[in-house]
């Protein structure tokens, strides 16, 4: 009689990766890794914190949950998806990173991201710099008046906010209205010169998405919905991302 076959473990505990697989379409292909390393060799975050995408995925597969949900590497990875692009099995490592970010208690996530997201939630602008709809319209109108006068070729130029029925709805990164408003003017002139019927929105004009970076799903959803719903309520045909 030979010895009984060795049995490994008992009932397998559900790991962090199992949970993420349940959320992702096709489980994010997280089980399909061939360990080829294409992801890591083409990742600019490889080496930071002694981590790389393949290592991160393998650690998740091995159930090293504590390590992967505590490494600050998840805040260095930009979730740029180049690893998916080069992966023969199209494994969604960035989403694994996203949920690892989410596993951090909100108050322990990077302060700069918490602040930027909280700013966006402060009012209907969804601006990561906290500028209110009134601040925004004040800056835009003031600047418009100044340029109409100084550059008479553009005396009829407009930069409308909440124009009903405009064809295009544009978002706007907060950096310009808050810190360097003159930098918005070239865009307005281009649109004016091409005869484009466009508008900003008083709600949801902020082009940033720090709640997404913070991995705060509920807040991310609210800011995106604010912007899209404003574009829809104005009857716009196209939402133009100005980034």
């Amino acid at each position: 009689m030979g010895e009984a076959a060795i049995k490994l473990g008992g009932k397998k505990e559900s790991t962090f990766m199992d949970k993420v697989k349940e959320i992702l379409p096709d489980g994010g292909n997280l089980n399909l890794c061939l360990t080829c390393g294409a992801c890591s060799s083409g990742c600019p975050a490889t080496g930071l914190e002694g981590m790389d995408p393949r290592k991160f995925l393998r650690m998740a597969a091995l159930g090293l949950d504590e390590e992967i949900t505590s490494t600050p590497w998840v805040w260095h990875c930009t979730m740029c998806q180049r690893c998916i692009y080069v992966c023969p099995m199209k494994i969604d490592i960035p989403r694994l990173v996203y949920y690892a970010r989410q596993s951090w208690p909100r108050e322990e996530r990077p302060k700069g991201l918490i602040n930027s997201c909280d700013m966006a939630l402060r009012n209907d602008s969804c601006s990561a710099m906290g500028a209110s709809p009134d601040d925004f319209s004040f800056v835009v109108e003031d600047l418009l008046d100044e340029y109409r006068e100084a550059q008479p070729e553009f005396k009829d130029m407009d930069a409308p906010i909440d124009k009903e029925g405009a064809e295009f709805f544009l978002n706007q990164n907060s950096r310009e209205p808050v810190t360097e408003p003159d930098e918005m003017v070239p865009l307005w002139k281009i649109l004016h010169s091409a005869g484009i019927n466009w508008t900003y929105g008083s709600k949801g004009w902020g082009g940033e998405n720090y709640c997404m970076f913070l991995a705060d799903d509920e807040a991310w959803k609210n800011t995106v919905a604010m912007s899209i719903n404003q574009a829809k309520s104005l009857g716009c045909k196209t939402y133009l991302n100005t980034e």
Binding site: W75, T78, C80, R82, P110, G112, S116, F213
Partner: peptide
Amino acid sequence: NFCCGGGGGTLQAGY
């Protein structure tokens, strides 16, 4: 293309 490194919130994340 390679990511520039400014995405994913890194500009505000403090690292």
